[in-house]
Amino acid sequence: MINFTFEGEPISVEPGTSVAAALLSHGERITRLTRFNSTPRSIFCGIGVCFDCLVEVDGEPNQRSCITTVKEGMVVKVQHGS
């Protein structure tokens, strides 16, 4: 199993799982808050096209959670703004 954290909470998943799949399977819906209205967003297209499921990964913002594979020790956070 691969271990990472989302907003500080530890999550374990099978190797090869995307961040989006990991979050959804642990009941975490909201990946980011929008820049202007701070409204929550989540997975929409699931295949890297729409850029709605952006998260911050190890301090790097704008990572598409649906096409980012979870790696050991990864620190994932909700993205605020863009």
Partner: peptide
């Protein structure tokens, strides 16, 4: 349609 939980069928299928 921008509420978390609304998605494309492709998203549901790909996951």
């Amino acid at each position: 349609w921008d509420i978390p939980g609304v998605m494309t069928p492709g998203a549901a299928q790909s996951l």
